[in-house]
């Protein structure tokens, strides 16, 4: 059963421009080192980082909470999926605890990017009857 759905869209040029104005600690406050490294190995790093930011926004929309309480951006990880080009989401910390509290049993994630836009959709699934 679907518990929640979230979608977010990021303008890649705007993301790049804003990120470039800050020190490296800015991106490090949002993404774990592994994601920054993974995206840095791609042809267009900021396109992939923007998609991962969109994924974070999408899951918070799906939970219906935003970042509240002890939640942190780094409670959310986007890692490569089993299929090349796919990604999956790992929730930990306070975000993971909230997902568990809501009965989330599975997190579905899809990312897509163009040079101009990065988008993510998250569907939260719980067991039937939850």
């Amino acid at each position: 059963m679907i518990l929640g759905i979230g979608f977010d869209l990021v303008d890649v040029a705007r993301f790049s421009r804003i990120a470039a104005r800050h020190d490296p600690g800015f991106l490090e406050s949002l993404f774990p080192p592994a994601e920054i490294v993974w995206c840095g190995r791609r042809r267009r790093r900021d396109e992939h980082l923007a998609a991962r930011f969109a994924a974070r926004e999408a899951v918070l929309k799906a939970l219906g909470t935003g970042l509240v309480g002890l939640m942190s951006w780094k409670d959310i990880q986007v890692v490569p999926g089993e299929v090349p080009g796919a990604a999956r989401m790992v929730l930990g910390g306070a975000v993971g605890a909230e997902a568990e509290r809501q009965g989330v049993q599975r997190v579905h994630l899809a990312l897509t990017t163009t040079r101009e836009l990065a988008a993510a959709v998250v569907i939260l699934e719980c067991g039937a009857g939850s």
């Binding site: 923007a50 930011f53 970042l67 309480g69």
Partner: peptide
Amino acid sequence: DSFSMVSLKRFLEKKYSISIPDDQAT
């Protein structure tokens, strides 16, 4: 937008030497 808000939070923290908890950046 959402990313701009995160960026603005960072600017404010650096400019005014403060730390804004994520849950206060609503």
